[in-house]
């Protein structure tokens, strides 16, 4: 496309490097910025630069953080004996969104999959062992995808931690809440029946 402006062209190309933004969307965004007050662009640019310059990873749980320790780890109301082990940052956000969980997290940075070149050494395994070693953690909740690689990762972690008196649990797998039984896929349904739970009436 001919933008008849080198400045516009460069801005469009910069936007287009972002995921799920094509040339046309990029152009729409750029033209929008041109139409708006210059302050908007300034604030946007500043927010981006500031974020990129100062964002860190929490030394404790490896979640995104503004300082050496993230807001979750620094929160005194959180239960420090409970740690939820997740693959990535988005999992933390999804669980936080539920508002149900009051413990801490540990972000592994992926799951073990040698086929994709990911071995245990490229994940935050040692730091998890160190956290458990410090004695503060009583229970680890493994909130990892129910795939073969997820299972491998849970097995492996539990082996690394077998010397410690820490309780290890996994999140429940099964028929989704509000879902209809007949629409559940066979694997999930079979698993839900094998791993059934006792019925409790309040």
């Amino acid at each position: 496309m001919n933008y008849s402006s080198k400045l516009i062209e460069e801005a469009v190309q910069a936007f287009a490097t972002l995921p799920s933004i094509g040339k046309k969307t990029a152009l729409r965004l750029v033209l929008h910025l041109v139409k708006m007050e210059p302050e908007l662009t300034e604030r946007l640019g500043e927010a981006l630069l500031n974020m990129r310059k100062h964002i860190q990873f929490c030394q404790n749980c490896h979640h995104l953080s503004d300082g050496p320790q993230c807001q979750i780890c620094a929160d005194p109301r959180r239960d420090r004996s409970l740690v939820c082990v997740v693959e990535g940052i988005r999992d933390v956000m999804a669980i936080e969104e539920t508002g149900q969980y009051k413990g801490l997290y540990h972000v592994l940075g992926g799951v073990i999959s040698p086929l994709e070149g990911v071995g245990p050494e490229s994940l935050q395994v040692d730091s998890l062992v160190n956290r458990v070693d410090s004695g503060e953690v009583k229970e680890l909740i493994m909130a990892v995808s129910p795939t073969i690689e997820g299972e491998t990762t849970i097995f492996y972690l539990s082996k690394q931690l077998s010397a410690y008196p820490v309780r290890i649990s996994t999140i429940a797998r099964g028929v989704s809440f509000g879902g209809e039984l007949e629409y559940a896929d066979e694997l999930t349904l079979a698993r839900s029946i094998t791993a059934r739970i006792p019925y409790k009436s309040e």
């Binding site: 999959s113 040698p114 086929l115 070149g117 071995g119 073969i148 690689e149 491998t152």
Partner: peptide
């Protein structure tokens, strides 16, 4: 499933 786990195990042996 078996073949998938086996491929991962073999990939790991190769990688190390």
């Amino acid at each position: 499933q078996y073949n998938h786990i086996l491929r991962q195990r073999n990939a790991y042996l190769k990688q190390v």
